[in-house]
């Protein structure tokens, strides 16, 4: 997706000095169905990467991070202790890919997710996610990066006092959407994941499968560039797990790049790229 010359984004980007990273970071991407949307229908619309992350601008502003891949890890390591952690991770995920990383518990899947989301720093190597270099990026650019990610956590992670609809809409509240818009989009998303009837409940009142679906709804509500799901089938029965798989695949078919970490063997479509992880190392 490239910025359209003469659009509001392009004009705003032009006003920023090329070396003024802070100015560029302040620029917001085009909102769905706003100026600059190139998708044929409203349903296909998703936020564009900000202009400075588009391919043409990468050469200007992120000379060291030029990459067609949305995830580009090169010899990345992170160690909690001498033996535990990730070692020499090389991973390239292209835009629109579905990548499944399979491995047993303790293999380093969650560590990899935490690293990709910027929660853990890159100790050695180079990591570029959606154009953001994690190794060099300052703390201030992490929130910007995270707005392009949809995260599904292994553990239950909700705002306990918010309702289901409130939890689904949290990313939109962070993005400054109006209350009405948040509610409408969250409801639409809940209908999509089959949680519309539970919209007024609290997360604690949901079953395990429903919680997983709520996490997916929250992760997808922004139409993220990259969906990272960490053990989305943990503690779920086969039926619930296949429901979650369907939701993930639906998001993938719409063009979202998907990265799934799992310790269970699942039936994934043939286009899915499977990678194994053992002892903190990836093995294709």
């Amino acid at each position: 997706m490239f910025s359209v010359p003469g659009t509001r984004d392009a004009q705003a980007a032009a006003r920023c000095s090329r070396r003024d990273k802070a100015c560029l970071v302040r620029l917001k991407p085009a909102f769905p169905c706003g100026v600059g949307c190139l998708q044929p229908t409203q349903a296909d619309c998703r936020p564009a990467l900000p202009n400075y992350l588009q391919a043409t601008d990468l050469t200007m502003n992120h000379k060291t991070n030029i990459s067609p891949a949305i995830v580009d890890l090169r010899a990345v390591s992170y160690h909690y202790t001498k033996d535990a952690g990730l070692s020499d991770i090389d991973l390239r995920v292209l835009k629109g890919e579905l990548v499944v990383i399979e491995g047993p518990s303790g293999a380093g899947k969650t560590t990899l997710v935490r690293l990709l989301s910027g929660e853990l720093p890159v100790q050695t190597g180079r990591a570029v996610i959606a154009g953001f270099s994690l190794g060099n990026s300052s703390e201030s650019s992490l929130p910007e990066l995270r707005r392009y990610l949809g995260l599904v956590f292994q553990e239950e992670c909700f705002l306990a006092r918010e309702s289901v609809i409130g939890n689904a809409a949290v990313p939109l509240a962070i993005d400054n959407f109006t209350r009405r818009e948040r509610k409408m989009r969250a409801l639409k998303m809940l209908v999509e994941v089959g949680l519309a009837r539970q919209a007024r409940r609290k997360p604690a009142e949901l079953s395990g499968g429903e919680k997983a679906r709520l996490q997916i709804a929250r992760a997808l509500i922004r139409n993220p560039q990259l969906l990272i799901a960490d053990e989305p089938f943990a503690h779920l029965d086969t039926q619930s797990a296949s429901g979650i798989t369907d939701l993930i695949l639906r998001a993938h078919r719409r063009g979202t790049t998907v990265l799934v970490m799992t310790n269970q063997r699942h039936a994934w479509p043939s286009e899915a790229r499977r990678i194994s992880i053992r002892g903190g190392r990836l093995a294709p």
Partner: peptide, 16 residues
Amino acid sequence: REEWRLLLLLGMTPAG
């Protein structure tokens, strides 16, 4: 704390 971690991972700034 866990909820703050979640908000940070969803894109909220520490200033928020």
